Amino acid sequence: MTDAPTDLKTRLLDAALPHVAFDGWTDATFRAACQDAGVDAAAARLACPRGAIDLAVAFHRRGDEAMTRRLATADLSPMRFRDRIAAAIRFRLEATGDAEAVRRGVTLFALPMHAPEGARLIWGTADVIWTSLGDTSEDLNWYTKRATLGAVYSSTVLFWLGDESPGHQDTWAFVDRRIEDVMRIEKLKTQARENPVLSRLLAGPAWVAGKVRKPARVPQVDLPGFTAGHTPR
Rank of each mutant, 00 (worst) to 15 (best):
G51N: 04
V20M: 09
R31L: 12
Q169L: 06
F91R: 02
V20L: 11
A56P: 01
F81W: 01
F81L: 02
A74P: 00
L140N: 10
G118A: 02
G51F: 04
L55N: 05
G24V: 03
H168K: 14
T190A: 15
T125E: 09
A110C: 05
L202F: 13
P232Q: 15
D139M: 04
A147P: 00
K214N: 00
T6N: 13
L201F: 14
G97Q: 08
C48P: 00
P5D: 08
Q169R: 13
A110E: 11
W130D: 01
L188A: 15
L161C: 06
P219Y: 04
E164K: 12
D163G: 06
T2D: 14
G150Q: 06
Q220W: 05
E65R: 11
A21S: 08
S154W: 04
V212T: 04
G24F: 01
H60M: 08
T6K: 13
F159K: 12
A33R: 09
P116S: 14
A119M: 12
Q191W: 09
A99M: 08
M113H: 09
L158D: 03
L121E: 12
R103S: 14
L140F: 09
T125C: 11
V57R: 09
R70I: 01
D75Y: 07
D170S: 14
I122G: 07
V157C: 11
W172G: 02
D3P: 01
L111H: 12
R69K: 13
A58D: 09
L71E: 03
N141S: 12
K211C: 11
A47G: 02
A110V: 00
T73F: 07
W123G: 02
P112M: 08
A42M: 05
A47M: 10
K9S: 10
V175K: 05
F22A: 15
L108F: 10
E100D: 10
P224E: 10
A72G: 10
S77Y: 05
A66W: 07
S155L: 08
Q191C: 00
F59P: 00
D75H: 10
P116M: 11
A110G: 13
V218D: 13
A216K: 14
V208E: 07
T231F: 14
A110Q: 12
V102F: 06
W142L: 06
T26F: 02
R84K: 15
S199D: 04
T10N: 13
T2L: 13
